[in-house]
Amino acid sequence: MATTLTSIPQGKVAGSSWSSIRRLSQTVLPPLAFCVLLLCGWEIMARALHSPLIPRVGPIFEEVFALARTGDGWREIWITLVRIVSGLFFASAVSLLLGVLSARNRMMAAFLQPGIVLGLAIPGLVWALLCVIWFGVSWLTPVVALALGVAPALTVQVEQGIRSIDNSLVEMAEVYRVGRWARIRYLWIPATTPFLLSGVRVGFSLAWKIMVLVEIFGMSSGIGYQLNSEFSTQNVAGVLAWTILFGIVMLVIEYGILQTIEHRLTRWRRTKLA
């Protein structure tokens, strides 16, 4: 009896540690392998071409460490991030309003349709140039350019999310006379969460591209401005270093913040009874 009692927990512990190792190998190893392969490929190419335009991995990472050590890199990244978040906040507010209106009202959807199609087709470069001309070197330039560039894609996500809500659940809420706020909190927001999260992802990736353009053309700080400076001195390692640094920040946002939120909000999908 005693043997059985002690052997069960041990088996469980061994099983759980094995499964966590397996999970780790499935989630962490593949992206890590991708990064290592990319660096190896780059190094091979740099050695083979032997050109100052393709620096080797070593000098690129020396630049990255230098930027990270001095603090200048983080300061510029912070400036760009604040601009991105401000623009995204503004774009999200507009998109939420337009997306809800468009999903709930057929006439409004038809009215907004050409604007959304045009908005999706116009390149971010156009908004960047126009906003620099209109607002000059001002905080409005990046925020408005980003909102104009990102809002159409976000509006589509919000609209799709709201349209995806199961009408039978809305009917159930009506029968049980669930109040407006409770419906928004317990029905509308959770049901649209996957679409909103995907919208935020799309928004972030678009925002970073538009922001760099705005900073190149019309700002005197931020990553785009720094990239332009490195470009003017033909410092390819510098351009790559800034890109890598910002890429790391975006990965931290994706894996550290967005995926954590997503994991938390959708835990009901994975829950199994013990």
């Binding site: 039978s168 659940l169 009917e171 317990y186 029905l187 959770p190 959708t266 009901w268 999908r269």
Partner: peptide, 9 residues
């Protein structure tokens, strides 16, 4: 006919 439960709750 269907339970119509909110699956996230």
């Amino acid at each position: 006919q269907q339970p119509r439960l909110l699956e996230w709750l």
